[in-house]
Simulated scan of single mutants.
Amino acid sequence: MGVFSLMLAGCRSTGDGCPPLVDYSLKEQKRAAAELRALPQNSPLAAMIVDYKKTRDACRASGS
């Protein structure tokens, strides 16, 4: 299963447009950050991760 597929695997709509947010441990976050930094410059995957963060931030701001 690809990285993006894994990110979407836990998504379920709550009816308000935002899926429930998955909590990641500090260890997982540090590993993901290291892997993200290792991607080639202008990586489409890196751009998708940035978009995913924006979505998570918007869901948090909306109280979801």
Rank of each mutant, 00 (worst) to 15 (best):
M1C: 03
G2C: 10
V3R: 13
V3N: 11
F4V: 11
F4S: 08
S5V: 14
L6F: 05
L6Q: 13
L6K: 12
M7E: 06
M7H: 09
M7W: 11
L8Y: 12
L8N: 11
L8G: 07
L8A: 11
L8H: 12
A9H: 07
A9K: 09
A9G: 05
G10M: 05
G10V: 06
G10P: 02
C11Q: 09
C11Y: 08
R12T: 14
R12H: 08
R12L: 10
S13T: 12
S13Q: 11
S13F: 06
T14L: 06
T14P: 01
T14I: 00
T14H: 02
G15F: 01
G15V: 01
G15M: 00
G15D: 02
D16R: 04
G17E: 00
G17S: 04
C18H: 01
P19K: 02
P20I: 06
P20Y: 05
P20H: 05
L21V: 10
L21D: 03
V22I: 06
V22S: 01
V22P: 04
V22G: 00
D23W: 15
L26C: 04
L26D: 08
K27Q: 14
E28V: 13
E28I: 08
Q29H: 07
Q29C: 11
K30C: 11
K30R: 15
R31L: 15
R31I: 15
A32I: 12
A32C: 10
A32L: 15
A32V: 12
A33Y: 01
A33F: 00
A33L: 04
A34P: 02
A34E: 12
A34D: 09
A34S: 12
A34W: 09
A34V: 13
E35H: 10
E35L: 15
E35F: 11
L36P: 02
L36F: 09
R37I: 04
A38R: 05
A38T: 00
A38S: 08
L39V: 07
P40W: 01
Q41A: 13
Q41E: 13
Q41H: 07
Q41V: 15
Q41R: 14
Q41I: 14
N42L: 07
N42G: 08
N42Y: 03
S43Y: 00
S43Q: 01
P44K: 12
P44D: 10
L45A: 03
L45K: 02
L45H: 03
L45T: 04
A47E: 14
M48H: 09
M48N: 07
I49V: 12
I49M: 11
D51W: 04
D51C: 04
Y52E: 09
Y52H: 11
Y52M: 07
K53M: 08
K53G: 13
K53V: 12
K54H: 13
K54F: 10
K54I: 06
K54E: 15
T55Y: 14
T55M: 15
T55A: 14
T55G: 12
R56L: 09
R56E: 15
R56P: 01
R56K: 05
D57A: 14
D57S: 09
D57E: 15
D57I: 06
A58I: 02
A58W: 08
C59E: 10
R60T: 00
R60A: 00
R60L: 00
R60K: 13
A61T: 01
G63M: 02
G63I: 02
S64Y: 01
